[in-house]
Each structure stands twice: as structure tokens, then as C-alpha cells.
Amino acid sequence: MEEQKNRARAGADRFRAFRLAVSLALCAAALACRLWYPAAADRLRPWIVGGGRTAAAFRELTESVQDGEPVGRAIEVFRAELTADGETS
């Protein structure tokens, strides 16, 4: 019984190590892509995390929060900016 338990535990440990190795490989792939193939990120970014307008609006949001504007009002301005962008484009 104890031996069976140990074998199961060892199997689980091996599986965990395998998944950790796959995870590390994925992280290394992301780092490699960022270092040697940044152009694809520019094409993917608008689809996944929004385009340049979103980035600019977020930058303005962080600046206004840093300047001491209340967070609620800063978020409202951020939302209005993005909505207005949508209407003009």
C-alpha cells in the first residue's frame, strides 16, 4: 500500500516537473520572440490588447492619476476618450 502511494507520488512529481519544463519553454519562446521578432507584436497588439489609441489613453490615465486626479474621474475621462475615438474613426 505504502509502495503504491510512493509510486503515485513520484508519478505526480514527474508530471509536475514536465509541465514546469513546458512552461519554462513557453516563457523562453516569449522572450526570444520579443528579442528577435518584435514586428509580429505590432501586428498582434491591436487584436489582443487594443491599438495605439488605447495605449495613449492608458498613458494619459496613469498621468492624470499620478497628478492627483480622483481615480473615478480619471477613469471616466479615459472611457470618454476611447468612446469618442470610436465615434470619429
Partner: peptide, 18 residues
């Protein structure tokens, strides 16, 4: 316990975000 799904998500964010 690190899952490949988490690594893929963080890798993608790392790739796309400043």
C-alpha cells in the same frame, strides 16, 4: 505548481505589452 496555460498567457502579455 506552474501550468503551461499560465506560462502561455504571461508569455503573450510579456510579448505584447511594454
Amino acid at each position: 505548481d506552474v501550468g503551461p496555460g499560465w506560462a502561455a498567457m504571461m508569455g503573450l502579455l510579456f510579448y505584447l505589452c511594454p
